[in-house]
Design a protein around this nucleic acid. Sequence first.
RNA 1: GUGAGCGUAGCUCAACAGGUAGAGCGCUUGACUGUGGCUCAAGUGGUUGGGGGUUCAAGUCCCCUCGCUCACCCCA
Length: 422
Amino acid sequence: MARGGRLRAVKGTRDLLPPETAVWAAVEATARRVFAGYGYDEIRTPELEDTELFVRGVGESTDIVGKEMYTFDDKKGRSVTLRPESTAPVVRAFLQHGLEHQPLPRRLYYIGPHFRYERPQKGRYRQFHQIGAELIGDAGPWSDVELLQMLLRFLGELGYRELVVLLNTVGDEESRAAYRERLRGYFEPLGDRLGEDSRRRLETNPLRILDTKVPAERELLAEAPRMADALNDASRAHFDGVRRGLERLGLEFRVEPRLVRGLDYYSHTVFEIVSSALGAQDAIVGGGRYDGLMRELGGPDLPAIGFAIGEDRLVEALPEDSPCRLPPPPPVVVLPVGEVEPLAALELAEELRAAGTAATAELGGRSMRAALKRADRDGVRWVVLLGDDELAAGTVTLRDLARGEQTTLPRAELAARLEGGA
RNA sequence: GUGAGCGUAGCUCAACAGGUAGAGCGCUUGACUGUGGCUCAAGUGGUUGGGGGUUCAAGUCCCCUCGCUCACCCCA
């Protein structure tokens, strides 16, 4: 509908309108409540960062840094980037403000827009929204378990059922290095059977070949060396601990030996949650441990683990019976009748608000019929009628649209009456 | 970056082989001058995404362009 003169939202971005905004707000409120229950505090970092943060933090070999970032020079020629993710920014802020000198571990969460320059499709937007959490400063498997416990509780409170965590480990640096060599050793002789992308990954990031979708390559994977066989003792112990903890707490998971993450900073535990309610972009949550990132960004050698939820996808796949879909009750409508000025309705509506009841006043210009029709269509239950009779008698007429009944009562009693749901 | 499908009223969609663009819903008003839901009536609605071409005639055919959608890729 590109009519000349009218502008539309930039490609890959979108407007959220009511009533959907209420669902988003409810989802975010649930996240804040649940996360607070686990001792998480909110952190807000800028949407604009030094480009170098992502080059170093996310990894030069990743698609995100290689071709998906909104990067530009500001007026002083500094290269800045709209954040494509928030783990690196959170770590940057953590270090910048010396939080490593405060008690550890530190639990932080964030909610906000992120940007990646990709071709939009279902569940994928250029401006998308993430709800994420980071647990910084604990290396043991129990922090992994606690984080997943919180994640599953959050999803459960949104009404999600029967979600399974896909779990894997990519080991520590030593194990990963050893595994990379085994993978290279296996795939290099098979180079001619690999696609262009996978041949390139053989050099830059062999682990990524594991999640290829090319059928011919997947066949080769069946015989490929397994990460599990390349783990050193420490990495194996960590993964065993995570699995034992999840089982003990009754949290469902499935080990996916080929699950890897696209960002360079992951180590040990990696996980993902997918939903069949989405299309090809079915990952609602991705996350994992990133023990090396802090040091990579110039800080101390502090371990950490986190997840990022795709809020857009989370809302799109939200179950029909999610409590977040319950619309808030519409306000009481105050209707001036006959010769009564709308100003009198504004006045009365404000009295109701002062008493804690949401109210809108009819601003005039339409018949009582039309105003009632509109209120009915909006799902309004209570209409307060304020006419000459009522004004003269110091009363109001309270109409219950659901029951089709109305009563006249002293104006002074109205607020109390509505407070209890009348 | 690559590929495919689709653009007609605010929304969902019609329009036979090219022949002057329609319905439902919505919105406004009235029947009902201080009373919604149901019903009935009237009204409001569009340079058929944009540009060019073929034709006596283009929503319909051809070309270009823009947009949307889905998929590849990648990931949340």
